[in-house]
Design a protein around this nucleic acid. Sequence first.
RNA 1: GCCGGGGUGUCGGAACCGGUAGACGAGCCUGACUCAAAAUCAGGUGGGGGAAACCCCGUGCGGGUUCGACUCCCGCCCCCGGCACCA
Length: 817
Amino acid sequence: MADRYAPQGIEQKWQARWEADRLYHAPDFDPRPKYYFLTMYPYPSGDLHIGHWYAMAPSDAAARFKRMQGYNVLFPIGFDAFGLPAENAAIQHGIHPYTWTMDNIERMRGQLRSMGASWDWEREVVTCDPGYYKWNQWFFLKMYERGLAYRALAPVDWCPQDNTTLAREQVVGENRVCERCGTPVVKKNLEQWFLKITAYADELLDFSKIDWPERVKVLQQNWIGRSGGVEFSLPVRDHPGRSFAVFTTRPDTVYGMTFAVLAPEHPLVDELTAPERRAEVEAYKFKAARASDIERLSTEKERDGVFIGAYAINPMNGAPVPIFVADYVLLSYGTGAIQGVPAHDQRDFEFARRYGLPIRVVVAPPGWRGEELERAYLEEGTMVNSGPFDGLPSPEGWQRIADEMERRGVGRRMVNYRLHDWLISRQRYWGTPIPIIYCQTCGTVPVPEEDLPVLLPHDAEFRPTGESPLKYHEGFRRVRCPRCGGEDAERETDTMDTFIDSSWYQYRYLSPHDQARPFDPQVGRYWLPVDQYTGGIEHAVMHLLYTRFWTKVMRDLGLVDFDEPMLRLYNQGIVLGPDGQRMSKSRGNVVDPDEQVRQYGADTVRGYLMFMRPWDEGGPWDPKGIEGVHRWLHRVWALVTDPVPQGTRADARISLRELRHRTHATVKRVTEDLEHFRFNTAIAALMEFTNFLQNVKGTPSGSGPAWEEAIRALLLMLAPFVPHIAEELWAKTGRPYSIHQQAWPQYDPELARAETVTLVIQVNGKVRDRIQASSDISAEEARRLALESERVRRVLDGRPVSDVIVVPGRLVNVVVR
RNA sequence: GCCGGGGUGUCGGAACCGGUAGACGAGCCUGACUCAAAAUCAGGUGGGGGAAACCCCGUGCGGGUUCGACUCCCGCCCCCGGCACCA
C-alpha cells in the first residue's frame, strides 16, 4: 500500500512554490491571445465567508482552464476598501477605519491564498489607497468639466441609521428601506452632487454588444424605465398666465380627462388652492409627507386625494376639470402632475369612483354600446367622444393628437425615464473626498488636477451626527481658493459613494502602480475589455449599471474605444446554511471555510462547491455531500499512486479501444462543460472516469500507452478544479513541473465516439428490447435486427407492422396500428 | 399586478437541437474486512404486481401535436427571486 492522500502537507507546499515562481503573473503584453477574467472584488469585512469561496473557486477553475487552453489570462484580485462598516467600527470600537480595513485585508489575503487560486497578486488594488482614489477625483473633475457632474438642491433619500444620503438604487422594497441596514429612509432637501447617468439612459438600454443574463438585462431595463409619450400644458381657470404640464403615454385619451391631479409637493399647489379649501389641502399634504409610515399600516392602499378648489382647462376641447392633490401622483416622475382619465387608467378609475367624478369613454372597446365600464379599458379601440378624432383607431389617434398638440404649441412628444441621476454625495468619512472648493468670491471651484489627490485626513473625529466628520476638521475644510487665492474658501466635506470605486476598478488592474494616469492605454489596448465577469446578482441595478455608464463616459473622454466594460456576465448563486436558510451568525448556521479547509483540504472544498449544484443556483451546504468529494479524491490518489496489482484481474477484459474511447469522450465532456461553467457535470464526468479506470486497473488494459494517456488526461483535467492534488500526482508520477503550465488535453472526435451502442428497440414508442450494435450500423441492418428480435415478435403477436422509424445509432421504433 | 427563473427518486441533482428518464454524489439496505466500530471495498436501491420471465404506472395538473414528449404547443396550479401607484 502506498501513502494515503493527505492534503494538509501538499497544499501549502505548492501554494508557496507557485507564488515564488510567479506562475500566475500575467504580463502586460504577450504574443498569446488574451483573456481577461474578472470576478467581483470582495469587501474586506473581516473574515472570508464560504460565499466568497463559492464566487471565487469556480472562477479560478475557469481561469485556469483558459490558461491551459493557451490564453494569456489576467485574473486579478483586490479589495473594495472604502465603506460604512469600517467607519461604524470606528464609532463603536474606537478603531480607525484605516486600521480596521487594512487589518482585515491582511487576514483575508491569507485566507484567499489558502484557496490555491491563480490570482495575479502583483496587480492587487486597494481602493482606499490615495494612489487609487486620486483617480476617482480625476474622473469626477473630467465629468464636472463636461457637465456630467453637477450639484443641485433636491429631495433626496436619507438613511437615519447610517446618517447619510443614498442613491435611489440603494433604497429598496415596498417600505423604501436602506439596502444596507433595512431602516426606512426619509426625504430631505439637500444640496448634493449628482452624476448625469440619465444622459446615457437610451444607450444603457442597448444590450446588443454584450452577452449578459436575461435577468440582469430585464432588471436594468425596468430600472431605466423608458416610456414615450406627450407632455402638454393645462392652463388654470381664473389664474391668468398660470398653467402646469402633465406627462401621458396616452394622448389618445385626452378627451376623456375629467379631472387633473398634482402631486402633494407640487410647487403650484399653494398658489392654486382656494382659501376655503386650504385647511383640508394642508392636512392632506401633512399626511402625505408621512405616507411611508401610513402605507405600512393600512392593509389596502386606498386611492385618496383632496380637491383644491381650482380648475384646469383641457387644451383640446376647452373643458374645465377639477384639480386634486393626491399622493398616487409622484413629484419625482414626469412633471409631478397628470391628466385624470378614469375610463382608460385603472388608478384614475378608482379615484373617480371614490369621488363621484364622471367616467368618459373615449376609446371604445370592440362591440361597446355605451354601457358603463366595470374597470378601466386599457387596450386599443376606436376613438369616440373625441371631436374631430372620432372613428380613428386609437393608435392613429395617438399620433394625430400628438401632432395637433405640437402644431398648436401646447405639447410635445417626449420620453420619460424612471432612472434618476446618480446621487453620489455621502455624509461620511471613509470615502473619497469630492475635489471641490467653495469660494466666497469665485463660487464652486474644482480642485486643479495637479493638486490631486485631495487626501482624506487621518485624524478625523467620528461622531454619528448626520454630517460629514470632515466638516469638523478645520485643517481639511479651510483652504485657499485655487482660483483667486482668497482665504474665504472651504472644501466640500462630503465623500463619494463607494460604487464609484467599483465603477472602474477593472481598468486599474492593468497598471495599478501608474502615477500619471488611471491606467496605461497601451496595456489597455491589449487587455480590454473584460472578456468574462462573474459575481452576484445583487448588483444588477447598482454596480453593473454604474460601470456601464462609467465606461461610456470614458469612451467619450477618449480613454477607451469600446462601449461596454464587460462582454460576458455570469451570476453565481448563493450558498445557504445546512438548514437551507441564509447563513447568519445569529442563526448559527455559518460554514467557516477555514475550518472546512483544515478538515478536508482546499481541493475538497473547491471540488465540493463546484459539484454541489449548478453554479448559478447555489443552495444548502450539505456536510455529508462534501464527504463524497473527499472520498473521490482519495480514490483518485489511490488510483494513480497504488502499485498496479499485476494480473489480478487478467480475466476481466476491457478493450484498449474502449479505454481510449472513454478517455477521449471524457475530455470532450469536461471541455464542453467548462466552456459553459457547468462545473457540477464536469466533476461528475471525472468521477465516472475515475470509477471506470478503477475497473480497468489490474486488467491487461491497465498498463501501457493507452493507460498512460488516460492517467495523464485525468490529471490534466483535474488541474483546474483541484490544483494541488493534481500538481502533487503529476510530480509523483515523474512528470515535469508545472501541471498548470501544460496544454489542455485534446480529444479525437473519432475516438470520442463509442464503438458500440445500445440500440433501443421500441414498439409503439415503448422500449421492448436493447441490442448491442456497432455505432455505425446501417438503417437497414438496424431495422432487420429490430424485426428479428424475439421480444418484439412476442409483443407484435402476429399484428402487421405499419411503419418502422430508425434513428441511426440510437433506436428503432416499430409501429403497429 | 408586471417581469425573470423553476417544479424530475428519500435528498442535491443529470438527461432537455423530441429518441434508453433518474448520470454523478448523498442517504438507506446487503455482503467482505474487523473482537467490534469507523474507514475502505463489492453489490443493490423510482412506485406497484409477479416465484420468475416479465407486465403496468411514473418528470406539478388537464388537454394537444408526434411513430415517440421531462423536452414542443394551449390552458391551469404551486414555489423562488426582482420591481411595485412610473401616469
